[in-house]
Write a protein that binds this DNA or RNA. Structure first.
Lengths: 342, 342
DNA sequence: CTGAAAGCGCTTACAG
DNA sequence: CTGAAAGCGCTTACAG
């Protein structure tokens, strides 16, 4: 079944293509009668405008691109959901690409999206990305670009973030408030900005409370597929290295749950012996035993906000207005649960 | 910065647009010298063909649509990953839409994708979908359509599935083999085909082994956001209703983990008192304690296979060959772990 | 080996 | 109120 075109409608009605096009778009300079006829026939023929032609004329694709490090990850799939739900409301479709934390792939994907002429791009950058030329390419082409979560400070575009430092500070302060005297930290990798910021928040809280910062209490997790395993290993290592730790702030709930599993197996009681705060508020955190105190990281909202900002900028460009870049910081919240009961 | 067009290259080189186009596509009837000049200039000007124009001419978008019930779900995000990775290899982009298990949304999304003129559609249908007109629309338009996981038997298109019945049979048989005498089943909703098939596999295994099928041993879970909770509740209910159950086959690992959590809390020992087999092989299953025996459901592979099949059909249609629908059944495997140690 | 011309299906400035 | 015409940027059958 070949798709119906404006031409066919015009021929059947013995009027011009121009008039058909205008009638369908409710131009004021078409008679009511003609509009009625056109719309009726369009409906019975099940006419759908050819997007390719429309795109070519309007130079818009009504499509945006999304590049994320990993799809199979609770936080990111929530972000995806937020972006898609919001995009749909505005009639935009979303093309999703996964960088796998690789700079090369990320670069390639940006190129693909650009040549596909998406109207805008949302990205959370890969851990492997240290060069930002591909991102500046987007900006040079005057395409709106919005970053979220893992951002590049040096690229001039809008960013949707949380205050990682403050959130980490809050988490650590909570441990201090409930009486922890020696607090460890399981951090993320050395490169990603958010793992750096969370570490700094932890450190600052210690210092502000007059507690010594001890580097040997900081353990690193790469947060790849093995997060859970890393949590277990670090927990074991911690017990081996120290005997007086009574609180841990752990970057990522999954790592924290791994650690709790290991502590339980080794007879260390949570929260009696060691109190734990995680990060992200993964749904399992409220469900395991003991339930895990954590920082709620609003993935869904982040996705929604990212699209809203992108939409604003796409609209500005369309109307030849200057687009303004902003940085939006979403609120996080400390969710107190059993793992920090005092 | 306005994108470069063929025309500009042609003007700078004082040749025709036709020749430029042919040179870039390596037509044999263009001189080597001209090709060289064109390609060089194209490169320095950073020429990228305008996809809109190409689409309009070739009637292809090199884009496919994917409609899934939920994105934030381990199985589905694995499928997404599989589809995207495979699509990328063939130069296809993937637009993702979420039906939220709603028939209305699913219908709307199919319409969107069709009017966007994607080259093909992959779908796992919503629980709420009982009418298939929107899917037949896709077929009428001669667009390839591939279903996976949750399929509609009545729609004539390719399907990528697992043998749910057989997998469930294997799971139940395993419980019988290790000595369980009274086996319960936590099933999914009453509508989805796969939850029906899994139930039937369970029942058949009992009958084939001369064990009585007892409907009071079958509990229902809707498998929405509350899977874990449902597992806990059913576990409690089961203990209340029966005192001699020694094995359970549970549809979905998440429900199983909920059940195990509750059993643990109530002092029921797994596997000593009750042995449990889950379904899906979620990564947490290998990580909790005791580790959970389960049926491995190959999400990533399912995604890859779905795209491969779609690609075959898109190619067939492009070459005006008849496209053939097939049903591909992927292998599942029983993964034995601690929850069924005898 | 090169290029003029038609056409994909739409939109819109302009004329009547 | 209606329509002829130009054009978006490309591809390709055809002529030379």
């Amino acid at each position: 079944m070949k798709p119906v075109t404006l031409k066919e409608i015009a021929e059947q009605l013995n009027i011009s293509v121009t008039t058909v096009s205008k009638a369908l778009k409710d131009y004021p300079d078409v008679s009511k009668k003609t509009k009625g006829l056109v719309k009726e026939l369009a409906k019975t023929l099940n006419y759908k405008p050819n997007t390719f032609a429309v795109n070519l004329r309007t130079k818009e694709s009504k499509t945006i691109g999304l590049v994320i490090p990993v799809i199979v990850h609770h936080f990111f799939s929530n972000v995806i959901k937020g972006i898609i739900s919001q995009a749909e409301k505005k009639g935009y479709l979303v093309i999703i690409l996964q960088s796998n934390e690789s700079y090369e792939l990320e670069k390639k994907h940006i190129g693909l999206l650009l040549s596909q002429r998406v109207d805008g791009i949302i990205i959370s950058i890969a851990n492997g990305t240290a060069d930002f030329k591909h991102l500046n390419d987007v900006i040079v082409q005057e395409k709106p670009l919005v970053m979220f979560d893992k951002i590049a400070k040096l690229v001039k575009c809008s960013k949707i973030i949380i205050d990682d430092r403050k959130a980490a500070y809050t988490a650590t302060q909570h441990l201090i408030d409930i009486g922890c005297k020696r607090i460890a930290h399981f951090r993320g990798g050395l490169l990603p900005q958010n793992s750096i910021d969370r570490f700094l928040g932890y450190k600052q809280a210690l210092i502000d409370n007059g507690m010594a910062y001890d580097p040997t209490l900081v353990y690193i997790c790469e947060l790849g597929d093995k997060s859970f395993e890393e949590g277990k290993q670090n927990a074991r290592q911690l017990l081996h290295d120290h005997d007086n730790v009574d609180g841990i702030f752990i970057n990522t709930d999954l790592v924290a749950i791994g650690a709790m599993t290991e502590f339980k197996a080794l007879g260390v009681k949570i929260p009696e012996d060691i109190k734990i705060v995680g990060f992200s508020n993964w749904f399992m955190s409220s469900v395991i035993s003991p339930t895990l105190t954590t920082i709620d990281q609003p993935g869904y909202k982040m996705g929604k906000t990212a699209f809203k900002q992108l939409y604003k900028e796409m609209k500005a460009i369309k109307n030849k207005k200057p687009k303004k870049s902003t940085i939006i910081t979403l609120e996080t919240a400390l969710v107190k649960r059993e793992s920090t009961k005092s």
